[in-house]
């Protein structure tokens, strides 16, 4: 009955853990943002999808209305998570670059070059 739920939860928790590892393993802000944003968003979507599958199973088994409510609310939460995480990551990256935290080990940094060309402030 709940094999799908277990698989979805397993994938989700694994990716959440991978996001935690990425936070410690990568060398600078930008690469850390890569790891944490993608892994935690993906993992959270999978654990929430497990909740949706569980609620739908219970709804078809019992026919109680509160399980449809759970499904709809979780789907709205997933959309809120998708939009707010991507935008938040973009905001953090932009503010980090503007406040002068440069990417480590970068082979090329066009943004800093263009700043210097325009005569803007660049650390």
């Amino acid at each position: 009955m709940s094999t799908a739920v277990i698989i979805l939860l397993g994938i989700g928790v694994a990716f959440n853990f991978l996001g935690t590892v990425a936070l410690y393993r990568f060398p600078d802000v930008y690469t850390r943002l890569h790891g944490t944003t993608k892994c935690t968003t993906f993992g959270s979507i999978f654990t929430s999808a497990a909740v949706v599958v569980f609620a739908l199973e219970r709804y078809f088994a019992t026919g109680e209305g509160r399980f449809t409510t759970l499904t709809v609310h979780v789907i709205i939460a997933i959309f809120a998570l998708l939009i707010s995480n991507a935008t938040g990551a973009h905001a953090i990256a932009r503010s980090a670059h503007r406040s002068g935290v440069m990417p480590k080990y970068a082979v090329v940094d066009r943004l800093a070059e263009d700043h210097r060309k325009k005569g803007g402030v660049s650390a």
Binding site: Y30, K38, C39, P103, K104, Y105
Partner: peptide, 24 residues
Amino acid sequence: GMIKANFDVAFRVITGKIRPGIVR
């Protein structure tokens, strides 16, 4: 794209192979 992205990042977290940079 998201599924590919996550396996890509997972691979990089485990092996630590990165070559970062900002492009225009």
